[in-house]
Nucleic acid binder design. Structure first.
Lengths: 121, 121
DNA sequence: CTATTAGATCGACAGATGTAAGTGTTATTG
DNA sequence: CAATAACACTTACATCTGTCGATCTAATAG
């Protein structure tokens, strides 16, 4: 999950190089791998829309599964648009859903949010 | 910052309504305001790109300010592209920069990441 | 079976996004 | 001053995204 590159904590004083010379050696490195960054960015991107973030907020603060028919009237977008947002959240692994007859119930998968939360803190 | 709407924790059993009747009353509500969600989504969106997330990762794990010239060779994109990503991070308030002669040094603004982190946990 | 409802999918479209090539700006070296 | 380095900005473009209206699917009520 992590690159073994040690983060160099010193800043070298910069000076203009002679023509043709390289500017600087990179002295700092990422801690997450490319794959780790892609995954975290995928989750962040899914949260990067106000409606989706509010959807997650609603689902998180509700101790159970929420029917789509309760979500639609909360937002000022059409039902297909909300369905689209829910699909994106599902694709990112942030929520999942369960069909029961005519109704679809959505709920948060806490582990996914914890991945991002862990990286942030 | 928060809506005063209490989150209803009960799920009403759903049943198909008579033609023309409303489906259901919304029983759940967001905890964050629209403005709060917009702000959090703005931050999440800025992190929603693998390169930008790695940039933040590099800057966070470095206890100081990092020269752009050190960042460019770490990524497989052109210098203008990296500059574009840094601009987006700056616009979201995630990083800021300081010019010193020819060099530009970027650093993370921890408070911004903490906003998102706080909502996530 | 038929009509209706909840919800997902499709098609279309305007606007945003990531990218590179080229250019501009500012500072430093000589 | 002239040449060059670091970095930001501009332009252009293909792709992606959010949105809605229309349609499709599956399930239920009558």
């Amino acid at each position: 999950m992590f690159m073994s590159m040690p983060a160099q904590l010193e800043l070298t004083p910069k000076q203009k190089r002679a023509p043709g010379e390289l500017c600087c050696e990179p002295l700092v490195y990422p801690e997450v791998t490319v794959e780790g960054a892609e995954r975290l960015a995928e989750v962040a991107k899914a949260l990067g829309d106000p409606i989706r973030l509010q959807l997650v907020d609603v689902l998180r603060n509700h101790a159970g599964k929420v029917c789509v028919c309760e979500l639609v009237p909360l937002f000022d977008v059409s039902q297909p648009t909300l369905s689209h947002h829910l699909k994106k959240l599902r694709a990112a692994g942030i929520v999942d859903s369960e069909r029961k007859g005519l109704w679809a119930y959505y709920y948060v998968i806490p582990e996914t949010l914890e991945e991002l939360s862990a990286w942030l803190s």
